[in-house]
């Protein structure tokens, strides 16, 4: 039973510690991830509070920053790579992202479409939701 097989587990630290071809030490990988994540988080908080940016664009910018930070977490903390030993992990992740996108975009799209079609209902909607 070989221990350097054709698959890697998600979040595998063994690859960081014992692989001869690993170029960065494990601590350095996590530290780079932390620094990048802190930078992106700080940018998010700044963008939400500043008045220097065009207001309607801020929400989109925040979403982009969150996607970037998700990428940082996946690469530096969960060690998801594009290598052939990660194919299974990436495929599962891609399927998860597909379902998540369908649920979120689909729900928001359908519900905003409904509230456009029933403009009078929007006032009493809140009343019903109280109970």
């Amino acid at each position: 039973m070989t221990d350097t097989p054709y698959d890697l587990a998600p979040g595998d630290t063994k690859a960081l510690v014992s692989r001869p071809e690993a170029k960065l030490s494990g601590v350095l990988v996590y530290t780079i991830g932390l620094v990048l994540a802190v930078g992106l988080t700080a940018t998010s908080f700044w963008a939400a509070n500043t008045s220097q940016l065009w207001g309607p664009g801020v929400a989109l910018g925040l979403a982009v920053l969150a996607i970037a930070q998700m990428g940082v977490h996946l690469v530096f903390f969960l060690h998801i790579t594009t290598g052939p030993d990660n194919t299974n992990n990436v495929l599962a992740l891609a399927f998860g992202i597909l379902i998540v996108t369908m649920i979120v975009i689909g729900s928001i799209g359908i519900m905003s479409d409904l509230s456009h079609m029933m403009p009078m209902q929007s006032g009493s909607m809140g009343m019903h939701m109280q109970h």
Binding site: M1, T2, D3, P5, Y6, D7, L8, A9, P10, G11, D12, N88, N89, A92, L93, F95, G96
Partner: peptide, 19 residues
């Protein structure tokens, strides 16, 4: 190479649960 090591199968299964 034979089947993947248990730690890889376990972590992949947990990865699917997390998703």
């Amino acid at each position: 190479a034979g089947p993947a090591a248990k730690r890889i199968v376990v972590a992949f299964g947990f990865w699917v649960f997390l998703l």
